[in-house]
Design a binder for these strands. Structure first.
Lengths: 229, 229
DNA sequence: ACCTGAACACCGTTCAAGT
DNA sequence: ACCTGAACACCGTTCAAGT
């Protein structure tokens, strides 16, 4: 096999960039478990071992995928502007983080991969540098800004690993489950039935992730603002 | 090979419990990557396939390992007592979560495994039920308690995935790194140098995880308390 | 310089066979 | 009922060989 799929049709040369973009779309479609070096090669119409001329190993592929995603986030940010004019820091941070979240929603595998990386890439560092700029520009002390980054944690990048399974007990089953567990989990069941009573649309296990994300984000940002006074 | 290691020494029969405890100690010692069905079997002086008489598959091993860890957390809690007397809810929640954190520090692999599970086990549900009891007992509305659980997220179980590598640039290298990146990461470097100036012990990349965890936890709990008034 | 085929040292898991 | 050995269908990666 030569690097042509049909006579007269020269296939684009392999490159690190092509490998990474193929890896991202493979994970987007089939989840991170679908990403194997062999399948990635097949997608690029190449032998698995050819990949190793452009990336050192699979870990470097994962590193690169994070950069692609964080690059998407950074690309959506217009620099300068209202970022440095003091009082607006909270809105600016909020806006940027919610924008990051929108990007991550398109790449459900990204949170897990980001958390599995042991070192921060230059691209990720640049994102955090920019976010830090918003905080310092808003008048937060270096110390408070530093605490803020830790408190935001992964939320700074737009995600928070949900421990509750969104699809756990959706539908009509949930009410029966509520009764089954009422004696063993009285507080949880009590809380959820009361919420369901107030809002009949809201059944067990079905939480509005966007609303919860914003609630937690605002809780943190409001807390920081208070400490900044 | 029969189930005896030496003549007269009958080996303990295999059981799901023994499998799970062996899995936990294997991961404690060698990290989660060291946990393979084959190695786990070797540790138990048994063939790999014998494990499948006690667990359905590796996923069930991971599920069980989470239960072992959360069981450790729950075991350290004395039920009843000061948990339900109103005003003390914040201290009670804080205390319980920090205790959970101490357990998780002994099982560094646990956060990753917990987040990889798609459904919550009865043991985990029981932990959250108990935590919910503290919130409701403290007078929080069902709605606010629900928001609180989401806002705490994995912190409710005592961990927060740190995005910054604790050992990234420790030691004397960090100062040189600071200078190298000063132009590309002005805000981050500015923040860190200012912190390092105030506290010479604190070098780049070396953060007090315990202090940062408590800062974020208190930020959230204080915010909830304010919303509860 | 880039790509390939065969091979190595692993995985999780199935299956038929043993006791 | 519990355990085993061989086998299957995968992995990531190395290496020597091709062009």
């Amino acid at each position: 096999m030569v690097a042509q799929s049909r006579p007269g049709t020269t296939r684009a040369a392999l490159s690190k960039d092509r490998v990474l973009r193929a890896a991202v779309s493979l994970a987007d479609e089939g989840g991170i478990a679908a990403l194997t070096m062999r399948r990635l090669a097949r997608e690029l119409e190449v032998e698995a071992m050819s990949l190793y001329h452009h990336v050192a190993d699979k870990d470097q592929v994962l590193d690169g995928m994070v950069d692609v995603v964080v690059g998407e986030i950074t690309a959506g940010v217009r620099d300068g502007g209202a970022s440095s004019d003091g009082a607006g820091w909270k809105a600016a941070v909020r806006h940027r983080i919610l924008a990051a979240r929108q990007v991550l929603l398109r790449h459900p595998w990204a949170p897990g991969v980001i958390e599995s990386r042991t070192t921060m890439s230059p691209t990720v560092l640049r994102y955090f540098d920019s976010l830090t700029g918003l905080l310092l520009g808003g008048g937060l002390s270096a110390d408070l800004a530093h605490h803020a980054l830790h408190a935001l944690g992964s939320r700074a990048l737009g995600f928070s690993q949900e421990l509750f399974d969104p699809a756990a007990g959706a539908g009509d089953e949930s009410e029966r489950m509520l009764e089954d567990y009422a004696d063993r989990l009285p507080n949880l069941v009590g809380m959820l039935t009361e919420i369901a009573h107030d809002d009949p649309d809201n059944t067990l296990g079905w939480c509005d992730d966007q609303a919860e994300f914003e609630f937690a984000l605002d809780l943190i940002l409001d807390g920081l603002e208070r400490l900044n006074s």
